[in-house]
């Protein structure tokens, strides 16, 4: 028996900006079973980070959300502020991108790792928190004396490991990793990936791994979901999707990454002309049609829904 730790139904997220309403996520649904790992891929601006942040209700005020998110059996959008705080970090924790300012520059790494333990009272004393943070650092491969270091004294890889240790502080059931390997060099990227794979083997951790780099996902994700313009356009078992893509966009994306972590391919994957559409001004019909090599006339008017495209697989394209 495995009920989903996370269930997302028809999630729609619209930003309310000065330029008007901007749809970032448009009707996304998926389930995540205990211990399962889902890879979420797409170019920047496709809504994958918005989706990740919405799973703990971290979006800015004024953002309009509809649909249903059930996390560990609780209706996320019906939670009281206190209930929401209790869910955060204990049920689901996020590994943020370490290259950005995800760590507070004026606090030591150790203090920031211990903080959630104190907030959620998963430790009885500060001593216990210290012991646990030392264990966490060991587990992510950091020397314990780095607990007293400030973020600027750490390398990019070390910062990313601190963020992973921090996410594990309260033993969450679900880990959401938002581009945890971006901006790391190749060696470190591989080490961080290996660490995340290890952590999954050790426990029944469920994982959502978000990246623009499809090839990275094949090592950590059981299932892949490809996002384009705020929707999932293809999903299925990760090796199947990667090696035998059905959606033209997935094909282009898979072809774009012959090697891991080629920085030049980050923004504009080769073999895929043009830029992703801006969320505020989506093209009519299938939003991918202006860049699609196989586009037909009907693609301009019809926006297809996900439909079965093989065993356990779905894609949203009129050609299927």
């Amino acid at each position: 028996m495995s009920w989903p730790v996370l269930s997302v139904k028809d999630l729609t997220i619209t930003y309310n900006s000065s330029a008007g309403l901007v749809p970032a996520v448009r009707g996304v649904s998926f389930d995540l079973a205990v211990g399962e790992s889902l890879g979420l891929a797409g170019e920047s601006g496709c809504g994958k980070s918005t989706l990740a942040n919405s799973l703990l209700r971290l979006l800015p005020e004024g953002t309009v959300t509809s649909g249903e998110v059930t996390i560990d059996g609780q209706d996320l959008f019906a939670l009281s502020p206190g209930g929401l705080r209790a869910v955060r970090w204990t049920t689901g924790a996020i590994v943020f991108q370490g290259a950005l300012h995800a760590l507070n520059p004026v606090q030591t790494a150790g203090r920031q790792v211990r903080e959630p333990m104190h907030v959620h009272e998963t430790v009885a004393s500060d001593d216990e928190a210290r012991v646990r943070s030392r264990q966490l650092f060991e587990r992510v491969g950091l020397s314990a004396n780095l607990l007293e270091a400030y973020p600027h004294q750490l390398s990019g890889g070390q910062r990313q490991r601190v963020l992973i240790a921090m996410a594990l502080a309260c033993d969450p059931q679900l880990l959401i990793a938002d581009e945890p390997t971006t901006a790391l060099d190749l060696m470190v990227q591989a080490q961080v990936l290996a660490l995340i794979a290890e952590l999954r083997e050790e426990s029944s951790l469920s994982l959502i791994f978000i990246t623009h780099d499809l090839s990275v996902l094949t090592c950590v994700a059981d299932r892949l979901a490809i996002m384009y313009a705020g929707r999932i356009v293809e999903q299925g078992p990760s090796m199947d999707v990667f090696q035998n893509a059905t959606h033209p966009y997935t094909k282009a994306l898979a072809a774009a990454f012959p090697t891991i972590g080629d920085p030049a391919s980050r923004k504009a994957p080769s073999g895929l002309a043009g830029d992703p559409p801006t969320p505020g001004a989506l093209p009519s019909g299938c939003p991918f049609h202006p860049r699609c090599p196989l586009a037909e006339d009907r693609c301009r008017t019809i926006e297809p829904d996900l439909r079965s495209s093989g065993q356990g697989r779905e894609a949203a394209c009129v050609l299927i």
Partner: peptide
Amino acid sequence: EDYLTVARAKGLR
């Protein structure tokens, strides 16, 4: 800054 989002995600008031 991102560390404020992180702090919120941790369940801080």
